[in-house]
Simulated scan of single mutants.
Amino acid sequence: MSHPLIGRLERHGPLSDEEKQVLREISSQTAVYEPRQDIVPEGSTPDYSSLIVSGFASRHRHSPDGQRQITAFHAPGDFADLHSFLLQP
């Protein structure tokens, strides 16, 4: 199976073998999530970022009346929470 992040980045230009190896190493820790399970719970401050390797995920927020509003969809090769990882708490 090809690495989704490497495939996505190579659409913009070639990567060296060393760059590919680094990308594989930094994304080697994996977790499996069930449908409707939160990857990053609202209000949390993760010290890592989550790369979608297979399947799909969505970003959502809850409105004051309890409804859920989907704000983004993520496909393999997307970071589900890169923005929150880069921001200071």
Rank of each mutant, 00 (worst) to 15 (best):
P89A: 12
L86A: 08
I39F: 00
H62I: 14
S54L: 09
A80S: 00
E10H: 02
D78H: 07
I6F: 04
A31V: 14
Y33F: 15
Q29V: 11
G77T: 04
P14I: 12
A80C: 00
R24K: 09
H12L: 14
V40H: 07
D81S: 02
V22H: 09
P35R: 03
A57T: 02
G13P: 03
D65R: 01
A80G: 06
R59H: 08
E42Y: 10
V53A: 07
Y33V: 04
D38A: 11
T45N: 13
T30W: 05
R11V: 12
V53S: 00
P89V: 10
D65I: 05
R24I: 05
A75G: 12
R59L: 09
Q88F: 13
T30H: 07
S27W: 03
A31P: 01
T45D: 15
H74T: 11
H62A: 11
A57I: 00
Q69V: 15
F56T: 15
Y33R: 06
D38S: 10
P64A: 14
I26Y: 04
Q37I: 06
V22R: 06
L51T: 03
I26E: 07
R59C: 11
H60P: 03
D65L: 06
D81Y: 02
S28G: 06
S58E: 14
Q21G: 09
R36C: 15
T30D: 06
D78W: 06
I39Y: 00
Q69L: 14
S54A: 12
A72T: 05
L5E: 04
I6S: 02
Y48N: 09
A31W: 08
S28W: 00
Y33P: 02
L9Y: 08
L86M: 13
L82A: 11
K20N: 05
Y48R: 06
R59T: 13
F85H: 00
I6L: 01
I52T: 04
T45K: 13
S49Y: 05
L51M: 01
R61F: 13
L51G: 03
S54G: 07
F79I: 02
H12S: 15
F79E: 02
Q37E: 15
G7I: 07
S84C: 13
E10M: 07
A75F: 14
S28V: 11
D38N: 08
F73N: 13
G7Y: 10
A72S: 10
A80H: 01
E42I: 13
Q29G: 08
Q21V: 08
L51C: 00
Q37A: 13
D38R: 01
D78C: 01
L5V: 05
D47A: 11
R59E: 08
H60D: 14
P41I: 07
S28N: 06
P14Q: 14
L87P: 04
H62K: 10
A72M: 08
K20D: 00
H74F: 14
L82E: 09
R11C: 11
I39A: 00
G7T: 15
E19L: 08
G43M: 02
E34P: 00
E25Y: 10
P35H: 08
G7Q: 13
L87H: 12
A57L: 00
Q67H: 13
Q67L: 10
V53K: 04
D38H: 09
